[in-house]
Amino acid sequence: MTASLILEQLLNGVQFGVMIFLMAAGLTLVFGVMGLINLAHGSLYMIGAFASAAVAAFTGSFFWGLAASLAAAAAAGVLVEALVMRRLYDRDHLDQVLATFALILIFSEGTRWVFGSFPLYLDIPEVLSGAVPIPGGGQYPVYRLCIIFVGLAVGVLLYWLIHHTRLGIRIRAGENDREMIDALGVNISKLYTAVFAIGAALAGLAGAMVGAIQSVQVGMGEPVLILAFVVIVIGGIGSIRGAFIGSLLVGVTDTMGRFLLPEFFRLFFDPAGATAAGSAIASMAIYLLMAVVLIFRPSGLFGARRVES
């Protein structure tokens, strides 16, 4: 095990983390502002990936695909918000969970209907293929570095959006007291649609970027959705900063756990047993992390210390 291998895994962890962040940021915004738990967020991720794969195959350009993923996911988000979510804001979480679960069924099967059950593949663009040397003598793919960069850029952009723009002021006000800002003349309905579209576009972006690393298939969104939930629980609901730090924690813990734990167990057990035990425990590492955070901070690292009624 060399230093460059560890660095490479660490970078993989960060890349995984920023990708989860793109999902978690949208989820946490939607929950923070509208009080809505949206299971169908994973479907928006899937829609982004499929749109990008289809458009990239049609035009031959990865970047057109990327643009299409943003547009398609945002459009799907707006549609879902206007048709379904709007009726759910005043309902309890149970109704929201069930309705968005129903949306997952519709989106997943609908996508299967249109694109078939076989996975699509999205090629990494020529410009971003190849690798760069990293300290310690290893090589690291440029494309993955790009994902990290885009994730960080989105993080900064969201921070700026929320803390330094009028829309951000309204979003924060909406989190605190939606009736009051409604009374002050802000069109809350438009605000909700905007927030939902932003979250959806980020999910679509994540789907499109990951689509070039993994295969694009039905059901790809749900595992990421659940990771985003873990992140939100760790970071605290409604907090972009919490989502960012939580995502990096989860991404690095998961990747490093899968890499290091089998090695670690090899010190004590025979190789086959060590791999089995190591990978089994590594697959639970992030949930254990979540449990530990919960024990000490039940409302997450950056969550407001208020009890939900």
Partner: peptide, 18 residues
């Protein structure tokens, strides 16, 4: 049960995945 509301939903979901 250290949490409630939407946190509870997400956490039970996460333990299920675990």
């Amino acid at each position: 049960l250290r949490t409630s509301g939407v946190y509870f939903i997400m956490i039970t979901l996460a333990f299920g995945q675990m």
